[in-house]
Simulated scan of single mutants.
Amino acid sequence: MSTDHQFFEDFARRWVDAWNSGSTDRVLELLHPDITWDERVFWPEVLHGREAVRVYVEAVWRAMPGYRMEERQLFTAPTEGRALVFFRQTGRGPAGLGENRSFETQGCDIFLGFTDGLLSDYTATFDIVDMLRQLEALPPRGQLKGGAYLMSLPRRAEPVGARGARGGEPTP
């Protein structure tokens, strides 16, 4: 199967539509059965296979109710079989943070490989720190720059273990 620019435009449209549907199955049907899913902003490890990604996607729905994404720009490298979707994402935080809190951040879904027309190698990046600040799960940044804000967090926030676990899954 050819991965020309038209293929990527169609795939990106179906990708955004699947995530906006809130349907795990619609997301998974775009993935090759042997997908490598390397998204360690939200998840602690690389995932392999559709069923592993199912757990991830369902955790997203729980952690970010009302999740929506909007394509800002599609970048393609057809001869390499790769593409990147620069997106805007919005949603609410989990019930434990208060249902009236919301976020709006930007990120990139990076499609590194396709097999038989299905996504087989994936990574992503987005600003989870800003998302958590918007959800009031992290303290305000103030005038701290770069890593100084992150380095200040262990001294400013309660230990992660003190918040309790949610079934062992990562939380945003």
Rank of each mutant, 00 (worst) to 15 (best):
E136R: 14
R133G: 06
L132H: 12
G113W: 01
A77C: 11
T115P: 00
R155M: 15
Q106L: 15
I128W: 06
R141F: 04
G142C: 01
G93C: 08
R133I: 07
L135T: 14
A157Y: 14
D121Y: 03
R72H: 13
Q134W: 02
L118G: 02
T76F: 05
Q134N: 04
Q73M: 08
P78Y: 02
L150E: 06
T90V: 12
T76M: 12
D130C: 00
L84K: 03
S120C: 11
N100S: 14
T76G: 11
L97C: 06
G117R: 10
A148L: 15
S102A: 13
R72I: 13
P154V: 10
R133P: 03
E99Q: 12
S102P: 05
G142E: 04
T115A: 15
G98P: 08
F87Q: 03
T79N: 05
G81V: 11
F87K: 03
S120I: 00
A77I: 10
G117E: 00
G117K: 05
A137S: 12
R92L: 11
P78L: 01
F103R: 06
G107W: 07
R101D: 06
P94M: 08
D116W: 02
L84I: 09
D130F: 02
R72V: 12
R72W: 08
M69F: 09
T123R: 08
L135K: 10
L150W: 03
V85E: 06
L138D: 13
A83H: 00
F75H: 08
Y149G: 06
A148E: 15
A124I: 00
P65R: 08
Y67R: 09
A124W: 01
G93M: 11
A77V: 13
E99R: 15
E71C: 11
F86R: 08
R72P: 05
R72C: 11
R88F: 01
A83N: 03
T115H: 13
G113D: 06
V129R: 03
Q143H: 00
V85K: 02
A83R: 00
D109M: 10
R101F: 04
E70A: 07
L153K: 10
R88Y: 01
A124F: 01
T105G: 08
Y122R: 03
F111D: 01
I110V: 13
G93L: 11
L112M: 15
Q143T: 07
M151I: 13
G96N: 01
Q106G: 15
L97P: 04
Q134C: 03
G147V: 05
V129A: 09
Q134H: 03
A137Q: 06
F126A: 02
R141Y: 06
F75A: 07
A157G: 10
A137V: 01
C108W: 02
Q73R: 07
R68F: 10
A137D: 14
Y67G: 12
D130L: 02
G117I: 07
G91R: 12
G117V: 06
G93R: 10
Y122V: 04
R101S: 07
T76W: 07
D127I: 00
I110C: 02
A137L: 05
G147P: 04
E158M: 09
R92C: 11
L153N: 13
M151Y: 12
K145D: 05
G107S: 04
M151T: 12
L132W: 13
V85S: 10
Q143P: 00
T105F: 10
N100M: 11
Y67F: 15
T79S: 09
G91E: 09
P94S: 10
D121K: 05
R82I: 02
Q134V: 07
F103V: 11
L135N: 14
E99D: 15
